[in-house]
Design a protein around this nucleic acid. Structure first.
Lengths: 206, 206, 206, 206
DNA sequence: CTCTAATCGAGACGGTACGTCGCGTCTTACG
DNA sequence: CGTAAGACGCGACGTACCGTCTCGATTAGAG
């Protein structure tokens, strides 16, 4: 029907406001997806379940998303967007300690949401979406002198952070947010920035 | 939680030798899985394809593995076992540079195999199996003084290494093995070992 | 046991007309079943064959019938319905000779159809459906004075007629229809009606 | 096609006595089949169930019978043989009343056995075996003058008797044996014998 | 009373059909 | 006239059973 020029992420972002019903349907679908993800691992979630929960017709799903994965991607971009506004400045900001602390705080406050997103079958897609957005942001930023390929830096930082957060989400009772933030700082951020800073104890923290 | 040293992969491996036919069937199945993974992403591989390629009956698959995932897990443990003999000593060995070099060399020599295993839907299961085996090995080793929780160290080192290798496997022409080994050393291994162990004051205790 | 007048065939027939596709699918399925029965004994007919022949999807079968048997039951009721309009009046009509003759004529004209239905594994189900419809009709008719239990009369007349027809269908070249009709009259109908008429030669024929 | 007088039951019966183990196995199998038939309809009985119940190995079944049907046929011949010694003389004996009475008595005494044999999926095979034995016996007997084809007489008498008995077995509380015997006599036997033999003019010739 | 060969149990295997489930398309009927 | 409801084609799933086969272990019956 429509002449879709742009692959699919722009479709998502610029066709929302046209019709009021479409907005409502999408919101219902993303909401239903989020709700279901907190009960069921992603790959056991059925499109029929989603539409049933969203109170919308089954075929309506396909008028908005080609796949179950596309819906998850949409959900992911929204949730990631708010989170990423904090995590990416880490790489540039002088006081990354503040930012990592804020990041962990945010995750802790939406624990069930991020547990659902970062565990189960959703992790793979979420990781991809995470990296995509991180890469987009990184392009816009002035590249500081980094001793390794810029793309690898994004992939590594994103992946390792996700792994750390996923590990933490399963044991959140045992570790406070600030401790995880410190680990994140020292284990992931510092090696990226400081050439050999870590070897000499000039870590970015304190 | 429970401390079973050899979780279940030995279960798989020590019920085989009873019947000669079972050994043959399993070998055919794992071989077929490996062959198919180099052509098709894991979640598009059909059990019927596997059995057809293996030259075995369709129902026979389920006499050995409950799932497609279980077979992948079996394949993974075998391939990982040989690889892990090199990668885990990295954490202890004085000259980790040697070991990381050997690791990257090994991966480069079996590029298509590890490309298949670390990309596509297989990555998740492989990551889990990797961590399982790494954890088993880590238990048996003398724990050096590590400034972060031992379990997190395993998860982080494994995950980050996999990410790095996966990134490399997609761009192998651009980077020689020794460079990746150096990155692995500096980006992942060094931050784990080096530094003040007591920065956070006995973090491994809950 | 329970006296449900219209057991379940009407259930089948009054939910069809809602959707035009359903009508088409059912007709295709029954047609395919009839066609296959003339080539293969019933219990060697596969649901996959039926759907392939009908040009319909495999799962579609189960959206209409729970079983292969249910489809045969549906086919049977249709074919029996047209036949039974002739055979049941035999019991009441004064000139049964006419009716039996018509019955045999009808069977002879659709020989392959009835051969398929009355031989092979289909016979059992067809017999049941035959008796069911005969019983339904018998309830509606005024019961003449019969010297044996009404239900037994139905079962006996139906079963014996089917046996006779099945026997005839395998040797149709050797016996003309009117002769079978005469046998049917004298062997099955007469003993039911005439108290002792058969002993004195006052058969219904002539 | 070929005129084998004793089709295949003698095949079965003359290879038994060689080994004592074979006798034991067969007895176990037939016993298990009979026991299972009283609990389960024939076509839901599994060969694995039979062998499990018989306490014999699974493959052993196929060393004695090619099919589940063959075993049922064997079981049937045994049970029918004892019954048929009474039912066939009905056609010749002057006092058929005595014989039918004895027949019904016998069935009543082994009610569960014959219920199992004459209802469920077993009925078809049993009917065939019944007719086969009846036909064999009829060949040996002097053919009285019968007004219809001899083979049809056998088929009709056997089938109608089985139908009557099956009907009775489901309602045995309501009708005593002697009443069924009377019905059998009047409804099935009498029409066969009585009447003008030449009503149709040498019907037995083709 | 021994020895040899047939029979047995156990169960893995290739094969085939089953009935279920979910996807994504497309038609129908209704508001 | 557009949206819900849902039937449909498709195809993979996991299960069940069949009939064949390969094993040793046992045991019957011939010598």
């Amino acid at each position: 029907m429509e002449a879709r020029i742009l692959p699919r992420n722009l479709q998502r972002q610029d066709n929302a406001p046209t019709d009021a019903r479409q907005v409502r349907s999408r919101k219902a679908l993303t909401g239903a997806m989020l709700a279901l993800l907190e009960e069921t691992p992603f790959d056991q979630v059925t499109i029929r379940e989603i539409t049933a929960r969203a109170g919308t017709g089954y075929a309506t799903f396909f008028r908005h998303y080609p796949d179950k994965e596309a819906l998850l991607g949409d959900v992911a971009s929204q949730e990631i967007a708010s989170l990423l506004a904090m995590t990416l400045p880490i790489l540039c900001s002088a006081s990354s300690a503040e930012t990592t602390r804020a990041l962990c705080q945010h995750v802790a406050e939406h624990r069930t949401l991020w547990s659902a997103l970062l565990t189960g079958g959703a992790a793979g897609i979420l990781r991809e979406e995470f990296i995509r957005q991180a890469r987009d942001l990184a392009i816009g930023m002035a590249q500081p002198d980094i001793w390794l390929p810029a793309d690898l830096a994004v992939v590594y930082a994103t992946g390792a952070t996700i792994d750390l957060l996923a590990w933490w989400l399963a044991r959140m009772e045992d570790y406070p947010a600030h401790q995880i933030a410190a680990i994140l700082d020292r284990l992931i951020i510092a090696p990226l920035l400081g050439g050999r800073a870590d070897l000499f104890g000039k870590t970015t923290s304190n």
